[in-house]
Design a protein around this nucleic acid. Structure first.
Lengths: 224, 224
DNA sequence: AGATTTATTAATTAATCGTTTAATTAAATA
DNA sequence: TATTTAATTAAACGATTAATTAATAAATCT
């Protein structure tokens, strides 16, 4: 019922619309939604509506909901790959410098830990494997080697396990951003760029020298 | 475990069935499913079928899907609360001891970080707030105070920020378990109890004294 | 100008979900 | 023993979902 003579003003191809922009809008809307809620919990219509288009556009441009999701994942990883490369390709590479830059990078892209953890821990398998592979080849080998080298050179403690050390380093850097909603509640602390700066310095200092007051007691037992 | 359709003979109240067991089976099945996949991604029928009963039983015993989920959350938190209390109520409380026990506790309950992060980061708000409140009152205040005390006593470096320090400590301890699937892939390292023991020792040593070889160089500049 | 292609929405479809209801039977009660 | 209550399933319901189709009109091509 209805319609007939009433020319629905919004039917048919709109005039002067940039279809590439529609594509980008959909990707952006998808990122906004999928980063906050689960794949199943987000509906096609919701995403499309936020992008200002009909839900059928998702099928038109991306072949379906899953297609849009994978396109979004690809996009995120590309921007991430690029930034990580520029970070680890600096001429003079040191763990401390890397750790510091890494913290700032996370502050600029707070969606990243969230995204990685969600993909790897909670995704339904399909995308998981690919994501895991891309991530595992990114930086871990380089950092492991760098830590091993420091131990060999005698700069780091003898017997220090590179794998465990890298895990600690990653945990210290990533966890605050990952658990931001909890941190903000429990500590009453906003996770912004100024905080990231403090965190970066704190982390490097803790990583290098620990919490113990060295002026008071130098070289405690260390014999494990 | 799959009873499936036992044909028409299975109508009406079954003989000699323990209704309390059905309740427990449903809770267990719910935990198995909800810990692996999202709330929305798990269907009532799936849970019930795994427990060997009809989907309507979820409504009968728990008032609905959400009721079952909350009952499961309650159960998990109860077991967790109990264990955490016994950890922080030891007569002589030290950060190092706590950190060590905490690691071992995580190794025994690997679902925990997964669950917490999922609840806080990805849940749809309703349960989130309650979970956040319970968690925020658990141990954070006690640990913050303990760290502050160590600084005051001159055991920890002057100017050490207790909040940042606690974040680092939590990150070092939790991250390996949270990212276990990634760790196992990237480092070829199984996250089991033996590894948790090494990790615990490693973390305490790193937390206390850092990575720098103290025998060679004491207190480097670190001026950024 | 006319035909075709491209982009868009409304309407429809088929599946699935959580929930409700009705039927059914064992157990408990009187 | 007769009646009520408790526990269970199958079936149906209404809502919501992703996906498909048909209608429509601008853009583009011939």
């Amino acid at each position: 019922m209805k319609q007939s003579t009433t020319k629905s003003a919004s039917l048919g191809r709109p005039s002067g619309r940039d279809s590439e922009k529609v594509r980008r809008d959909l990707l952006e809307s998808a990122r906004d939604h999928f980063l906050k809620r689960d794949f199943k919990a987000v509906s096609l219509r919701e995403i499309a509506s936020s992008a200002g288009v009909n839900g059928a556009m998702v099928n038109y441009y991306f072949g379906g909901k899953k297609g849009l999701y994978l396109a979004m994942v690809d996009e995120l990883f590309e921007s991430l790959d690029e930034k990580m490369r520029s970070l680890s390709d600096s001429s003079e590479f040191s763990i401390a410098d890397f750790s510091h830059s890494y913290c700032l990078l996370l502050a600029e892209n707070p969606w990243w830990p969230n995204f990685i953890v969600r993909e790897i821990l909670f995704s339904e398998g399909e995308t998981k494997e690919e994501v895991l592979q891309r991530f595992s080849k990114m930086i871990a080998p380089k950092l492991l080697h760098a830590i091993g080298q420091e131990v060999e050179d005698g700069n780091y403690r003898e017997g220090l396990n590179p794998e465990l050390t890298l895990m600690s380093l990653m945990g210290m850097a990533i966890f605050p951003f990952l658990a931001a909603p909890m941190i903000e509640r429990v500590f009453g602390m906003k996770i912004d760029e100024s905080m990231a700066n403090k965190l970066a310095e704190h982390n490097v200092a803790l990583f290098m020298n620990g919490v113990v007051n060295q002026k008071q007691q130098v070289t405690e037992g260390t014999g494990s």
